[in-house]
Design a protein around this nucleic acid. Structure first.
Length: 928
RNA sequence: GCCCGGGUGGUGGAACUGGUAGACACGCAGGACUUAAAAUCCUGUGGCCGUUGAGGCCGUGCGGGUUCGAUUCCCGCCCCGGGUACCA
């Protein structure tokens, strides 16, 4: 019998569980290493073969680090609050906690079968009150903090209040939208509600009236990154703009630090770039244009103050607060109807009709601060209320959008920056930051970059405005009108929000009769009976968004059962931060930005000593599905094989890939698959039914889901692990094709046969490892492999490791090597990849502890030293043949030896080489 | 449009700092074993021409460049995947 993977894999999974092999404790004597997977949302569909890709890679890395002597923290848990469980609860009435728990146990079963070396004693679930107590705790801390721009850190709100009491707000440089100023006396005379209103515009967690993304179908608001192309990321429902009272987190206070600190972390460039774009820093100037009315001023933000002499009109957003005041009576009706029209445009329309140009002249003029010219003020929806000042100075010659607007409405396009010869300003704008200023008074002749500096200086010295930095990043809307999330620990007294005292946390999610919003539109938590703080104060009814629990979970694993704190100071000091973080690229601007934000906040309040959650991040690629199709003749139950389908009129139908092998349909299984196919007829080719195939997303509806369970049942977990790695580079997306798995399956059998041999009369293979001394050749193979595997793992090149193991086993098989001195180290280096078979071999080699406690063998260069090298001899760069030469020869000797060879002389045919390039140990190139 | 990735055999992919392109595997073809099949093992397998124990030419998306030598570096273009979208 060959390698019995079923029994052996089960045996070791039980061993690891019973012996708590991967349980880890603080150990100051060992260097630590923290490997984290992005924890999954446990969906009802279970894992498909794409999900474990990252888990396997990080597991290999963890196991490797253990062998290298590190104390490895490698935990797993569940992002357990979320919409699918709640949608299911709405449909069925089943409490989402029940569905979630069931899904979790299914996930756990699947994960266990893969042989992952998690320390399960540290498991967390974000929906567990012992966990979300601390999520709420962080919220309370955010509520009680403000951001001091001078010190560039968050500080306790009490420090702000004491400044207000002593000197009002004039000396405060805070991240706040509060514009007015007040004195200490005024502050002290304010009523409590008035004070709190002011404080709300300083707190890092605050409630405010804000335009939000409202999704009627989901009955909740969504954050910007949960909206993709005008529809909800989950479910694809339309999203509209709506003004609502909302809890938000002041992430904008951290914009600059979130941007700068990207330089210090080893994350994929694409993720860093996405975060940079999302934060969207732009430097320029804010300046005001006087209006020809009532002494009003229009504030604009521009990144191109160098083009200020090219302004031919101004544009303000339809929502601009000055609009009603400045529009002249004759135009009022037209302008207001335009404003109404643009307000009613849904987000989807707005996004899909980007190129539509619309706007209306307000009848008012602004005065150019330098020329004194009158400039018409327009309203146009291409200007966004939420960015900058909601108004722009339009320079059509040098800005694409202004150009389109000017062209559409026949507004002049004055050129102020020199452009290349023949540039047609009627056709498009010249927006490159290259050239010199022209027609621009004191800026004439300056290059763009210098002109920007000069213009800002001039604007400042004339007190028209000043240099300013703007960010695209918006504060994060934090409340969700949903049931299945962390309650926001806030109650209201006289309409003023107060947070619960920290020692009264957690605020437990109450039971409700239905998971829908109440009839009056209040969120589901309004249905909870007698749910009041101290029996009389209303609680906040929205819950936290999905990303709350995941914004700090990496810390909880460090000390997951601590009931006094997020984690003990010892644990935080020891584990510090994640060394390797593995997860999907889709979290680039959501989770990965929030977790950085919370980490910095916890640092500011002195809780952490680190400012970034993860040193190194790897995005594993997606595994796509490979769908199979059958072709049904129109209006019949007859199916025609792939290559014959052209002769008929057919419809392609997805067929379950699990009843197709190498694109050949299992006809019996197909008939049994669905009742309507039980009497299906087939038109075959060569006696087979061949299916069509296509690469698509792996999903139930496309019948192309391959589960890890079915692969493990058929081939074993080690084989699946190896194959997932063998598919290609970790970061690349690639389609799953089960066909190739026989390669790694063969490898495991070959490996087993290296340690075992057939014996006459015996049914099973017999243990065959001996204690003979290894040969030079065998040692060379082993040490080459040790070096390659270590190098591969260090650079996360797991696919090439698998090839290298194959090469090693092939070569040792050819040498019939059964020597312990070779095969024992091999079992260790293989164990991160194929832990079950390695444990079994390790035990058979006579060890009574887990191979995970062994040491990674030392690589010894001596075994690789060669004295001969087969030099490739090329002529004019083309390799013709090899010549074996001693490596100790000098360049000159090599050249002489090579030129003396008959075959070289023959190819030269009497010509004298112009040049001979000799790279010792590499190549000889003869140029003639 | 802009910003990232990426284009190598029939397929997945390899090639570390510019040095023998196609490792390893799948698939395919031929052979051995077998009554037969499966499994296993052996051989071959980039293309074209030629040979049948000769060899030659072409070849890493396309066009150019640098170099003794380019899949690798530079310039221009094409295609595919992902992100983003009026951010002034």
């Amino acid at each position: 019998m060959e390698y019995p993977f079923q029994s052996i894999e089960k045996k070791w999974q039980e061993y690891w569980k019973n012996n708590q092999t991967f349980k880890v404790e603080l150990n100051p004597d060992k260097p630590k290493f923290y490997v984290l997977d992005m924890f999954p949302y446990p969906s009802g569909a279970g894992l498909h073969v794409g999900h474990p890709l990252g888990y396997i890679a990080s597991d290999i890395y963890s196991r490797y680090k253990r062998l290298k002597g590190f104390n490895v923290l490698h935990p797993m848990g569940y992002d357990a609050f979320g919409l699918p469980a709640e949608q299911y609860a709405i449909q069925t009435g089943q409490h989402p906690a029940i569905t979630t728990a069931a899904n979790i146990s299914r996930y756990r079963e699947q994960l266990d079968k893969i042989g992952l070396s998690y320390d399960w004693s540290r498991e967390i679930r974000t929906c567990d009150p012992d966990y979300y107590k601390w999520t709420q705790w962080i919220f309370v801390r955010l509520f009680n903090s403000w951001y001091d721009n001078s010190e560039k850190k968050a500080r306790d709100i009490s420090s702000l209040i004491s400044v207000f009491e002593k000197s009002g707000n004039s000396e405060i440089n805070a991240a706040s939208e509060f514009k007015d100023s007040f004195s200490a006396n005024e502050w002290n005379s304010f009523a409590e509600s008035e004070r709190e209103n002011i404080l709300q515009s300083y707190r890092l967690a605050y409630i405010s009236e804000a335009t939000v993304n409202w999704c009627p179908a989901l009955g909740t608001v969504l954050a910007n990154e949960e909206v993709k192309e005008g529809v909800s990321e989950r479910g694809g429902h339309p999203v509209e703009r709506k003004l609502m009272k909302q809890w938000s987190l002041r992430i904008t206070a951290y914009a600059e630090r979130l941007l700068n600190d990207l330089d210090g972390i080893d994350w994929p460039d694409s993720v860093k770039e996405q975060q940079r774009n999302w934060i969207g820093k732009s430097e320029g100037a804010q300046l005001s244009f006087a209006l020809d009315k009532d002494g009003l001023k229009l504030e604009v933000f521009t990144t191109r103050p160098d083009t200020i002499f090219g302004v031919s009109f101004m544009t303000i957003a339809p929502e601009h607060e000055l609009l009603e005041k400045i529009v002249i009576p004759e135009r009022k009706e037209e302008v207001l109807s335009y404003v109404r029209e643009s307000a009613n445009r849904s987000e989807r329309e707005r996004v899909s009709e980007v190129k539509r140009i619309s706007g209306v002249f307000t009848g008012t003029f602004a005065i150019h601060p330098f020329t004194g010219n009158k400039i018409p003020v327009w309203v146009g929806d291409y200007v966004l209320a939420g960015y900058g000042t909601g108004a722009v100075m339009s320079v059509p010659a040098h800005d694409e959008r202004d150009h389109a607007f000017a062209k559409h409405f026949n507004i002049p396009i004055p050129q102020v920056i020199s452009a290349p010869d023949g540039f047609d300003f009627l056709e498009k704008a010249y927006d490159a930051k290259e050239g010199v200023c022209i027609n621009s008074d004191f800026l004439n002749g300056l290059k763009v970059k210098d002109a920007i500096t000069k213009a800002v200086n001039e604007i400042e010295s004339r007190s028209i405005g000043k240099g300013r930095t703007n960010y695209r990043l918006r504060d994060a809307v934090f409340g969700r009108q949903r049931y299945w999330g962390e309650p926001i620990p806030v109650y209201y007294k006289d309409g003023i929000p107060y947070t619960l005292p920290e020692d009264e946390l957690p605020l437990i999610l109450p039971e409700v009769d239905k998971y829908l919003p109440r009839e009056d539109g209040e969120p589901p938590l309004a249905r909870a009976n007698d749910w009041k703080y101290k029996g009389k104060y209303d609680y906040e009814l929205t819950t936290m968004p999905g990303w709350a629990g995941s914004s700090w979970y990496f810390l909880r694993y460090m000390d997951s059962s601590n009931d006094q704190s997020i984690a003990s100071q010892d644990a935080l000091d020891y584990w510090k931060q994640v060394d390797l973080y593995m997860g999907g690229a889709e979290h680039a601007t959501g989770h990965l930005l929030y977790v950085r934000f919370w980490t910095k906040f916890l640092y500011d309040i002195g809780f952490l000593k680190i400012t970034e959650p993860a040193k190194k991040l790897i995005n594993q690629g997606m595994i796509q599905g490979r769908s199979n199709f059958v072709y049904r003749l129109k209006d019949s139950n007859t199916f025609v094989s792939y290559n014959l389908r052209g002769q008929h009129e057919t419809i392609a139908l997805h067929v379950d890939v699990n009843i197709v092998e190498n694109d050949e349909l299992d006809i019996e299984a197909f008939r049994n698959w669905r009742p309507e196919y039980s009497d299906a007829e087939f038109i075959l080719e060569d006696g087979k039914y061949i299916c069509g195939a296509e690469i698509e997303k792996m999903s139930k509806s496309k019948w192309n889901v391959v589960s890890p369970d079915s692969m493990i049942e058929k081939y074993g977990a080690d084989c699946l692990r190896l194959y997932e790695m063998f598919l290609g580079p970790l970061e690349l997306s690639k389609p799953w094709n089960t066909n190739g798995i026989s390669g790694t399956s063969n490898f495991i059998r070959k490996l087993w046969k290296l340690y075992h041999e057939p014996v006459e009369g015996a049914k099973d293979l017999v243990w065959a490892v001996n204690n003979e001394a290894p040969s030079k050749a065998e040692l060379k193979i082993l040490h080459q492999t040790i070096k390659k595997i270590a190098d591969d793992i260090e650079r996360y090149s797991f696919n090439t490791s698998v090839s290298n193991f194959m090469i090693c086993v092939n070569e040792l098989t050819n040498l019939k090597c059964r020597k312990r001195a070779i095969l024992e180290p091999l079992a260790i280096i293989l164990s991160p990849y194929a832990p079950h078979i390695s444990e079994e071999l390790w035990e058979k080699l006579g060890h009574n502890s887990s191979v995970s406690q062994a040491s990674f063998p030392e690589f010894n260069q001596e075994y690789l030293v060669e004295d001969q090298f087969a030099y490739p001899i090329s002529f004019n760069g083309k390799t013709k043949f090899n010549i074996e030469l001693p490596l100790k020869l000098s360049k000159e000797q090599i050249e002489q030896e090579v030129l003396d060879k008959e075959e070289v002389k023959k190819l030269l045919a009497g010509q004298t080489p112009k040049k001979v390039v000799v790279v010792p140990g590499r190549i000889v190139n003869i140029v003639f």
